[in-house]
Amino acid sequence: MAASTADLVREVREFVREEILPLEPAFLHHGFAAVLPALREKRQEVKARGWWLPPFPREWGGMGLGLLEFARLSEELGRTPLGHYVFNTQAPDIGNMEVLLKHGTPMQKERFLKPLAAGEIRSSFAMTEPEHAGSNPVWMNTTAVLEGDHWVINGHKWYTTGFEGSAFCIVMCITDPDHPNPYARASQIIVPTDTPGFQHVRKIAVMGEQGEDWMSHSEIRLQGVRVPKENLLGERGRGFAIAQERLGPGRIHHCMRWVGICERSFELMCGYAAKRELSPGKPLGSRQAIQHMIAESKAEIHAARLMVLDAAEKVERQGAEGARVEISLIKFFVAGVLQRVLDRAIQVHGGLGMSDDLPLSFFYRHERAARIYDGADEVHKTVVARAVLKEYGLEVSL
């Protein structure tokens, strides 16, 4: 890691510790709205320090960091549920920004990307449908038919992250149902959320919480939604290809954020084990079972970090397609490490770990989905195994 990057990581770590972590108790007990005014102030501080949108080009107000550099920063921001929002790198906005930057027309960049990059609006992304398995993305019912100068969209989506309060939604829909290649049947279309026929059905309660604002997931319906044909994002029929482009770097972002959560959980676990006494003069950390939890967590976190950084380096050299196996490896491996480290940290804390006095229970509820979204663990394991077996002469089809 270059000296300049190391200095930046150190400064951001201190900022997170001093400026963002103190907001967590109010957030955990009273919700996102309770800390939103303070978060807006922190966002302005980040802009003033020149840290806004770290992985985005400078001409769009970002820092221009490469994927590997941002991976180190993403770990620091992941130490708190509020970190990425303060730096405007929260999902799905950062993914939408990256796609708009690469595939958006000048009109789309001016109308949608510019205010999104400035943090003036939020966005959402709609792909998953309740009627079909998310592990088979080519199977969907949402359609867009070109009538004159407008796309007419009909469909049903859910787990549309951040829909509440978003200004627009990028919708994956079938535009060419008869194309012989099933991966060339879908397109992505930008739909302002105030378009007639765009209905918010409900926020989906996840692990007992509905969430707020960008931390929520929604079920939506599109009934006769009409948008100008100019709202097509990228080329017609390239919806899946564009989705894969965003998922490659996106998985690096996610995995390093998970490493940050692991580090935060590990620090809480070790601090508690060193101070909490089972009886006078007998701290938790004196017990071999606790020591093993600490050792196993330390090893797994270290391995996870190195794997993700290695994958990020390969993505920078060969692109997401060239690093496909490495991306799948980190997706299921780091998700598993995350779940195990969180479980150990909660176990060591006992009843305190289950409470909202610490962020552990929040992380546990919200990050169980890490083994599902962006491709379930089982899908990524299959990708890796097929690639390995191919080297031994065995071609395995889906």
Rank of each mutant, 00 (worst) to 15 (best):
P106G: 08
V86I: 13
P106E: 09
A387T: 08
G208R: 10
D7T: 15
G336N: 13
K102F: 12
L65A: 01
K102L: 15
P22A: 04
H29A: 15
A335K: 02
W139R: 14
S123K: 08
L82K: 08
E267A: 10
I330W: 05
P249W: 10
A71L: 09
P283E: 13
E164K: 08
A304C: 04
R238H: 08
E69A: 13
P228I: 04
I294N: 03
L67H: 00
R276Q: 14
R58D: 10
Q339T: 10
V227H: 14
G319A: 03
G148A: 05
S397G: 06
V227D: 06
A274H: 04
E120W: 04
F240C: 12
E219D: 09
P283D: 10
Q339H: 15
N88M: 11
G95I: 05
A118C: 01
R368G: 02
I121K: 00
F363W: 14
S216H: 10
G66T: 14
S4V: 07
V16Y: 09
S123V: 12
F112D: 06
P192V: 12
G336E: 11
N154E: 02
V337Y: 01
L360R: 00
N181T: 12
M293F: 15
N136S: 11
C169K: 04
V227I: 09
M1N: 14
P177R: 00
D176L: 15
C169Q: 06
D377Y: 03
L278H: 04
T161Y: 02
P249N: 10
P228T: 04
F163R: 02
R365M: 14
A345T: 11
I346Q: 08
S135N: 11
V396C: 07
A370K: 00
G393V: 08
E212V: 02
R221V: 08
V86Q: 12
E263T: 12
H380G: 11
G250E: 12
A243E: 14
Q339W: 07
G353Y: 06
T382I: 10
R185Y: 01
G250C: 04
M256D: 12
A323V: 00
R17W: 03
N96W: 05
V334C: 01
L389S: 08
I346P: 05
Y364R: 15
D343F: 05
A118E: 14
